[in-house]
């Protein structure tokens, strides 16, 4: 997802007997649905896992601005351009809410940014794919933000208070993102044959990477089981992916577009769509830094940060000068 394959640092799920008294009391609070707040006692592994998960999520929001930024100056109309700008600004906001939530766990903003810029921190695999046509902006809103919503709505109920509250804000705004994307797709799908072909091409390229966003099956994963016990992961990757397929197929049908999966078929017995095998080699390859745009994304991000340095420094100089003037008065 926006945070993929988050490591808990544990080799096996902690059993009740393994827990100290403090840990048992902590787990009991989580089991009772009580929110954990930053100043509450928490196991070190819980804290570290959340820092990883929330900062990875934040980095994804920030890097996620880049594929869309590619189309700001080339949006087909002024209205579409304004909408795209508003969406990109939201992504920056989402990143900031999440960095703030991570900081309540005792890491600094600058540390988190340094880790991203040094290439040490992960962000979602999906943002390493290029946006080749305007239809990609539609497909991202519809599919990528659609997938994000499926993942993030349950996280509004996660055990860590600041993360849950950030997710509530994010989800409210994310619905706009998904709808504006579908709106672009509707317009293209109902347009000329060339426009419809462009929409189909975008769906062809974004479908599988969107399903990969949920991460490989984690039915056997110790990390996921531990995160589930801590209530910072509420559904398995496969459950969320199935939800994505089930809700998206009818939406594609409405558009008159074909999902690029010959194995896609309604399974009456399961009450779900069956779908084809995912190319996990591609996913791991992107995660390793070899996706189509990994290097470019990081380079652009670092350049933006470095280009802004003189301005950040000027703001500090101004603040210090004002403070000195005030102190002297």
């Amino acid at each position: 997802m926006y945070a993929q394959m988050v490591d808990t640092g544990l080799k096996q799920v902690q059993s009740h007997a393994d827990m100290s008294d403090e840990e048992q009391a902590f787990q009991a609070r989580i089991d009772a649905g009580v929110k954990i707040e930053p100043k509450d006692w928490m196991p070190e592994a819980y804290r570290r896992t959340l820092v990883r998960q929330i900062s990875q999520h934040a980095h994804s929001e920030i890097v996620g601005q880049l594929p869309e930024g590619n189309w700001v100056t080339r949006a087909p109309t002024l209205k579409r351009k304004s909408i795209l700008l508003a969406k990109i600004q939201d992504e920056a906001g989402h990143g900031l809410y999440l960095y703030s939530a991570a900081e309540t766990l005792g890491v600094s903003r600058d540390e988190l940014l340094d880790a991203l810029h040094a290439g040490k921190a992960k962000y979602s695999s999906i943002f390493n794919y290029p946006t080749l046509t305007w239809a990609d902006i539609g497909a991202i809103g519809w599919l990528v933000d659609g997938a994000a919503i499926i993942n993030q709505v349950p996280l509004c109920r996660c055990s860590f208070g600041p993360y849950a509250r950030a997710m509530i804000r994010v989800c409210k705004e994310e619905a706009f993102h998904a709808r504006q994307g579908y709106d672009i797709m509707m317009k293209l799908a109902g347009g000329t044959p060339e426009q419809k072909a462009m929409a189909q091409d975008a769906l062809n390229r974004w479908w599988w990477p969107s399903l990969m966003m949920f991460g490989p099956s984690d039915a056997e994963s110790v990390n996921s089981a531990q995160s589930a016990a801590w209530r910072i992961k509420l559904f398995s990757n496969d459950e969320l992916r199935q939800r994505m397929v089930d809700q998206t197929v009818p939406q594609a049908e409405f558009l008159g577009l074909a999902i690029p999966d010959p194995d896609l078929k309604w399974n009456e017995e399961r009450g779900h769509y069956d779908f084809g095998a995912i190319d996990w080699d591609e996913f791991y390859n992107v995660l390793k830094g070899n996706g189509p745009c990994n290097r470019e994304r990081l380079r652009t991000r670092v350049k933006a940060y470095e280009d802004g340095e003189w301005f950040r420094e000027a703001l500090v100089a101004h603040a210090e000068k004002q403070a000195a003037t005030q102190a002297a008065a």
Binding site: L96, Y97, S100, R109, L315, V316, H318, A319, Q322
Partner: peptide
């Protein structure tokens, strides 16, 4: 509603408006 970083109060208000 949340928190943010800023060098001074004036920028904090400006950033809060945007965020």
């Amino acid at each position: 509603v949340g928190s943010l970083h800023a060098p001074d109060a004036e920028m904090a208000i400006n950033n809060a408006r945007d965020v």
